[in-house]
C-alpha cells in the first residue's frame, strides 16, 4: 500500500498538541496507524513540544505530592503492562482506533441507509458540531455533487474514490474546505468505504439531494 495523500501539517500539529477535536482525531489517528511517514512527522512535532516542556517555567508542586503518588502506587499494586508484540500486516480491516469507535470490523457494522444506494454510520460527534461518519458507496456510484459549509476530511479504508482532485485509495486522506465543490465517485470494481469528518453540513448542488438532506441527516 502506498499512501500518496496525507493530512496537512497544521492538522498533524493540532493532533500532536491535543487541540484537535475528537471526531477529527479519530481520522488522523487511524491514518497514522497505516502511515509511518506521518507518524514520523508527529514524533518530530512531539520532540519540539518536549523541548518546550523541558524549558518551561516551574510551579511548585504540593509538598505531599510525591508521597501521594507513592501511596497510590502501593495501594493499587503493580499492574501488568502490555509490551508490544510484532504486528502482522492485514490490509482489509478497519485499523484501530477506528475499529473500537465503530464497535466492530468493516463487514459487521450496523449501517444506516443514506440515499438510494449508499450507507452511513456515525462514529463520533463533537460539541462544536464536528461529526465523523463512515460512508459506504457502491462500486462505480457517485456521491451527489456538493460543496462544504466548512472543512471535510476523508480517509479511505476500502476501495477508492475519485474526483477532479485525484484518486484516493486505502490510507489516503483528502482535506477540502468551503471553497471546493466536488463530485466524488467510487472507483468501479469495489465498493468504497471511507471515514468522512465534517464541521458543517454539506451543501448539495441538486435540489433533490437538498430536499433529501434532512431525511438522511448528512
Amino acid at each position: 500500500m502506498t499512501i500518496i495523500h496525507h493530512p496537512n501539517e497544521e492538522t498533524l500539529l493540532d493532533y500532536a498538541s491535543g487541540a484537535l477535536g475528537e471526531a477529527w482525531s479519530v481520522a488522523v489517528a487511524t491514518h497514522l496507524a497505516v502511515c509511518p511517514e506521518c507518524r514520523k512527522t508527529v514524533s518530530e512535532l512531539e520532540f519540539v513540544a518536549g523541548s518546550f516542556l523541558g524549558a518551561s517555567e516551574e510551579v511548585k508542586v504540593d509538598d505531599s505530592s510525591f508521597d501521594n503518588i507513592l501511596e497510590r502506587l502501593d495501594q493499587e499494586g503493580e499492574r501488568p503492562v502490555s509490551v508490544g508484540c510484532s504486528p502482522t500486516n492485514q490490509e482489509t480491516c478497519l485499523p484501530n482506533p477506528l475499529r473500537e469507535y465503530a464497535g466492530g470490523d468493516i463487514d459487521n457494522l450496523k449501517w444506516r441507509r443514506l440515499g438510494p444506494s449508499a450507507h452511513q454510520l456515525v462514529i463520533c460527534s463533537d460539541e462544536d458540531g464536528s461529526v465523523a461518519r463512515l460512508l459506504r458507496i457502491p462500486a462505480g456510484k457517485p456521491v451527489p455533487e456538493h460543496g462544504h459549509g466548512g472543512e471535510e476530511m476523508t480517509l479511505v479504508l476500502r476501495g477508492a474514490f475519485e474526483d477532479h482532485l485525484g484518486v484516493y485509495q486505502r490510507g489516503d486522506v483528502q482535506t477540502v474546505d468551503s471553497t471546493i465543490t466536488h463530485k466524488p465517485f467510487a472507483v468501479p470494481g469495489e465498493e468504497c468505504i471511507c471515514l468522512a469528518v465534517t464541521n458543517a453540513p454539506l451543501r448539495f448542488s441538486s435540489l433533490a439531494a437538498r430536499f433529501l438532506q434532512p431525511v438522511v441527516g448528512i
Binding site: 500500500m1 498538541s17 491535543g18 475528537e22 482525531s25 479519530v26 488522523v28 489517528a29 487511524t30 497514522l32 496507524a33 497505516v34 502511515c35 509511518p36 507518524r39 514520523k40 513540544a49 516542556l53 502490555s82 508490544g84 508484540c85 510484532s86 504486528p87 502482522t88 500486516n89 492485514q90 490490509e91 480491516c93 478497519l94 485499523p95 484501530n96 482506533p97 475499529r99 469507535y101
Partner: peptide
C-alpha cells in the same frame, strides 16, 4: 502529560494508533 491534560481538563478521550493492532503498519 498532554494525554492527562486532555482526559482531566477536557474530559474527552484521545484516539491514538494501536501498535499491537494487526492493521497497524510498522516502520
Amino acid at each position: 502529560a498532554r494525554n492527562q491534560r486532555i482526559d482531566l481538563l477536557r474530559k474527552r478521550h484521545r484516539p491514538e494508533p494501536d501498535y499491537e493492532d494487526p492493521a497497524f503498519i510498522p516502520e
